[in-house]
């Protein structure tokens, strides 16, 4: 089996072969530029520019790989700013011993994700680290998008609606299940997906209604709501009965003692919008495959200013505190 060896980082023939025969041939010899920088032409607009690094274990999981995650994550970071994602970079840090076949699968999933999102991978870098100094593969992607329909972001007020484009906690829960040897009768996949088409559709139809938009990745939906309400004169209230949460996510969360509201999503956007348009926004989301389970999940209130909280099934309120550290499986 071919694996990554120190020679792949040498700067010599082995490295050139890896870059040309494996990386560029998969990611796109047509788009990746050979010089030290990619020269890009963008229409006259403001640009959005972002970067993110990906270190997830396991590197392959149901619904995606570290590669598709890296593309979609960066695409979504651009999209929630109202930008149309155009170009991304791909920097790979490979640990000695990584099977080339695995690398190829990851690169293919990157390419597929980029095609789906409509972005071009235009530049890249590859470094090799000794065995034990990395965790198979790390990826950094930076992205550039053009801001064509900017979001107005009027102030959030009491009565505004909190909307999400689908089920909560799928990605984080799927990963936790994999790490803890839980399996599924029907399956649970990561929700890893690019949201730019869905988001652009909403912005196009309701440029004035959207007051806040953020992809709910690490820390989950509850952390986004804490971000919105921090120091604010309003609170964010969720309705437990309105939350779209898959049975499998509920099951894993109960078994491991974790809370899906704090589990990562990789294809979910939380929107705060004028309540007049809330149902119309949900209807537009539902037209996209990434928005099939979209729902209004809460409202902005005067109660508990500065807090995110949830009205439970029985009608009591429960604070959704700021997450301090990563959730661990527990027995108590």
């Amino acid at each position: 089996m071919d694996i990554i060896v120190p020679g792949h980082g040498s700067g010599g023939k082995m490295m050139n072969d890896l870059i040309n025969n494996t990386i560029k041939s998969i990611l796109g010899s047509d788009t990746i530029q050979i010089d030290d920088s990619a020269i890009l032409t963008v229409p006259v607009h403001s640009i959005a520019f972002t970067t993110d690094s990906y270190t997830i274990t396991p590197i392959e999981f149901s619904g995606g790989t570290i590669g598709s995650l890296a593309v979609n994550g960066t695409v979504n970071d651009l999209a929630v700013m109202g930008a149309v994602p155009r170009f991304i970079s791909c920097a790979l840090i490979l640990e000695e011993g990584l099977p080339i076949e695995t690398l190829k699968r990851i690169l293919i999933s990157m390419k597929e994700a980029a095609l789906k999102a409509g972005v071009a991978i235009v530049t890249g870098d590859t470094k090799i680290v000794p065995k034990g100094k990395g965790d198979c593969i790390y990826i950094n992607t930076a992205g550039i998008g053009t801001v064509e329909n900017s979001v107005q972001r009027r102030p959030i007020v009491s009565g505004d609606s909190i909307i999400i484009n689908g089920t909560i906690g799928d990605h984080g829960t799927a990963i936790m299940a994999l790490r803890n040897n839980l399996s599924f009768s029907k399956g649970l996949s990561s929700d890893c997906a690019a949201l730019n088409h869905l988001i652009q559709d909403i912005i196009k139809h309701f440029p004035d209604a959207i007051k806040f938009m953020r992809d709910a990745t690490r820390g989950g939906v509850a952390s986004i709501l804490n971000e919105i309400t921090k120091g604010a004169s309003f609170g964010a209230k969720l309705f437990e009965e309105a939350l779209p949460i898959r049975d499998e996510v509920k099951g894993v969360s109960e078994i491991l003692g974790i809370d899906p509201l704090y589990s990562a999503n990789e294809g979910k956007v939380v929107i705060v919008a004028d309540s007049t348009y809330a149902n119309d926004i949900v209807a537009i989301m539902k037209k996209h495959p990434e928005g099939a389970d979209a729902a209004v999940i809460g409202t902005i209130t005067h109660e508990f200013p500065g807090k995110a909280y949830m009205q439970t099934t029985i009608g009591g309120n429960r604070i959704l505190p700021v997450l301090i550290e990563e959730q661990l499986p527990r027995i108590c």
Binding site: L182, S183, F184, K186, R246, D247, K250, G251, E254
Partner: peptide, 9 residues
């Protein structure tokens, strides 16, 4: 054993 589609040994 199974609960809500999740299986565990």
């Amino acid at each position: 054993v199974e609960s809500m589609g999740v299986e565990k040994i």
